[in-house]
Write a protein that binds this DNA or RNA. Sequence first.
DNA 1: CGATTAATTGATACTTCTCAAATCCTGTGG
DNA 2: CCACAGGATTTGAGAAGTATCAATTAATCG
Lengths: 232, 232
Amino acid sequence: METPIRCQFCSHLPGSAFHGLNNDALEEISHMKTCVSFRKGQVIMHEGARPQGVYCVHRGKIKLYTLGTEGKEQIIRFVTKGDLIGYRSILSDEPISASATALEDTHACYIPKSSFFKVIEDNPKFSLNLLQLSCHELGEAGKMITSLAQKSVKERLAEILLILRTTFGEDEEGYLDISLTREEIANMVGTATESVIRLISELRKDGFIDSKGKRIKVNDGSALREIASVFE
Amino acid sequence: METPIRCQFCSHLPGSAFHGLNNDALEEISHMKTCVSFRKGQVIMHEGARPQGVYCVHRGKIKLYTLGTEGKEQIIRFVTKGDLIGYRSILSDEPISASATALEDTHACYIPKSSFFKVIEDNPKFSLNLLQLSCHELGEAGKMITSLAQKSVKERLAEILLILRTTFGEDEEGYLDISLTREEIANMVGTATESVIRLISELRKDGFIDSKGKRIKVNDGSALREIASVFE
DNA sequence: CGATTAATTGATACTTCTCAAATCCTGTGG
DNA sequence: CCACAGGATTTGAGAAGTATCAATTAATCG
């Protein structure tokens, strides 16, 4: 447990669900929250559990996933700095629908359930932000559903490489700023690990991407867009 | 355009997003809304458009779907009495992510965007209801993602027959109270029409379901649950 | 530097899709 | 009320796409 930065001064405030709240509200939240850390690989929330609060990620990367029948992970989405975890479950009053595991060492602010609801009640703006957020994600989920139902594995892989680039950005050398195993990529695409491996090496041969071990670089985004049939 | 029932007296109020609002609020909404009808097959909202208001369905059944690359429908979910359409787009301030088409003649109440926001501002309870609703649907979408990514077509079909039963119920003879073409079922399952046909006849041979034309009856729900690997 | 875990490759089996043809329905106009 | 046109459903056969299994090589971590 470390001393938390006060929310007013958090660099992720503008893009977060707390943007637009007045100073008093932010000051109050700052007092209600605590700061927690997770090591790479650590489970932050467990599918089926009842969360007692929400996390606002300050640093690090997290995967959200459900477990399928055979215990296979299906990655639903990724969470990074400024994003909330656990709010879905608390707001719908349902058990957690997706487990969260840290992909790298992570710092987050923890806001207990009761405080979270207090912020909602006291700040219509926050409530609206959350509505906007959940509705946006609902749209994203819909896209993912259509993609899984109608696209081939190759199309989906190309799509997800592009999503990874927008979500995590690139480092100085142009590689995606996220380290995933082939299995994790497969669990996002919804296919077998071996299929991902074959297709990645195919994309590499075609020159659309580069890859050194886990590091992947998108060379030709428009080629990937074409493969993924993304027209946006 | 017909005379709308006032919301206070609407039989769908308890299960809708407007439940728990006080009488004054409901009275106000009643004055802001208008009543509209759609014929079977009519498109209510078009993917990509900017909706100017939301519909609260009073009677009828509606499919929400996105169009995939080849123009193929992917049905995301169904909407029935008491449900809202269009709120996701308005709240996230994004174009409509899924088209809506009436599966049978439909009556709905239309609430213009500005009125909708006014209700939200004036009634924290409504805002919370919407949050709960969208978060619940987010969980459902996650389940659908996992199912599409990991289950076989047969498992998904069994799952969807069960979903249809919970969503639409059964008529006096035990048949699902919804009429869908094989193609529409396929568009929900995320497979080819012919595959659905083959699997439906397989389930019929096994005695788990009956079907006469479009009418489908679930004989053995627990067998379907077993096939679908649903453990709830 | 072992010992594990991850990544890769090949061969094979299986599921699901696609195309084509036949049959069945359903609503419509005579 | 009947015949018919057009769509929906069904069935079969073959092709394609993916998964699975096994064996090998590479990478990673104490």
